[in-house]
Write a protein that binds this DNA or RNA. Structure first.
Lengths: 213, 213
DNA sequence: ATGATACTGTACGGTACAGTATCATATTTA
DNA sequence: TAAATATGATACTGTACCGTACAGTATCAT
């Protein structure tokens, strides 16, 4: 009963233990993403991982705790790079395009798609996990974009009637209907398509909301 | 080993058997949507359903076959109403608005959201099911919209540079970023929000692509 | 060195569940 | 009515797997 932390707030731990914990996490991530939660047995995990089941349980409490740790780690890692650079001297169009490309690239990342499936499959039995995932993903990107657009409106460069809706729908357009195909069947976008999606959506957006042509 | 049809092509069957089959299907649908595939035991199903396990197996082959039948039935049922009325005398805007509202209403339908989760959770182990679901859902709606828009372009009412992209992104905008929240956490839209989403997206779309103002 | 703590390897209890087998009963068909 | 077939109720088989117990070993602090 030494550590029961299923989250990422480590207590005092030996360096070797920390390393071991990271190893568990890495292998669990790999297996969960590949085979899903139910599809991954802990015996199998330990076999690939080395270490013992008891140690695993001392780190993560139970299987659900392990899943939570995996989701937290991976989520924060994936979404960390999505932001506008405020001290950026590029044009509005360039800033939007840069954001748009990074956003599309991100949501079509194979690992994020698999993670999404993983979380969604557990959404009914573990709503907290789903909420955490939404908070750090969908809601966060919405916040980032809306903050930027508000600022641009304040500067008189945009005129938007309903900022929330505009944001929501721009993000929707960037993902496109094709996002469903990625989510369900891993149909990805190539570099060129990402560029096209971003350009097309940003152009349409600016045509609707930019102030001076 | 009488019938091994896991699809919907019924062989010769007594009426009473057909009725029984429907009953299995209805209860299976209910349980799968509520508790997921792995979460639903067949013993539990039979208990609620009446009938016996042997009969169930004679109809659907195995558990996967039952799932397939449920997905096929429900999918066709849900998407059947989504189309443009060709002999419609309404304005372009009205026709688009009518389609947009029906589309949003549909993709935010609780049962369709649950079905989506169900299929997605099985996507890795059963890609065929996922492909079928995509075909009848996402791809089909894309086809319907694009056919309509092509016709409108031919009539000189719209001028669209990339019809596929425009379609894809209009559908994306209609769902909005909020669709993720619905998918992950059943956060639905009310009647007013559906109207707002449709109006906002259709307006933006027409501002970009309509020919004469 | 010595005691305290963390870890390994293995085995096992308990349980859940898909799929099959059995036998009795009902319903159709000839 | 008799044979053939479909169904019901239930028990059973095999298996997979979570979580725990335990005895022995390695690693740390002092």
């Amino acid at each position: 009963m030494s550590q029961k932390n299923s989250t990422n707030e480590y207590p005092i731990m030996r360096p070797s233990s920390l390393k071991k914990r990271q190893r568990y996490l890495a292998v669990a991530t790999e297996l969960f993403l590949e085979q899903g939660y139910e599809g991954t047995g802990l015996d199998q995990l330990i076999k690939r991982c080395g270490g013992s089941k008891l140690t695993l349980y001392s780190y993560f409490g139970d299987k659900k705790g392990l899943l939570k740790a995996v989701v937290i780690e991976l989520t924060e890692q994936l979404w960390e790079g999505l932001r506008f650079d405020v001290a950026d001297e590029k044009s509005l169009n360039d800033q939007l395009m840069s954001f748009a490309c990074r956003y599309i690239e991100l949501v079509y990342t194979p690992d994020l798609l698999k993670l999404s499936r993983l979380v969604m499959a557990q959404a009914q039995t573990d709503p907290d996990l789903a909420n955490f995932f939404l908070e750090r993903g969908a809601c966060h990107s919405q916040d980032v974009l809306q903050t930027f657009l508000d600022e641009q409106s304040r500067l008189g460069r945009l005129k938007i009637d309903h900022a929330f809706l505009a944001c929501d729908q721009l993000l929707g357009a960037l993902k496109g209907n094709r996002y469903l195909e990625a989510l369900f069947a891993d149909r990805l976008l190539n570099e060129q398509e990402i560029q096209d999606y971003a350009e097309h959506a940003v152009n349409a957006f600016l045509r609707s909301y930019q102030c001076q042509g």
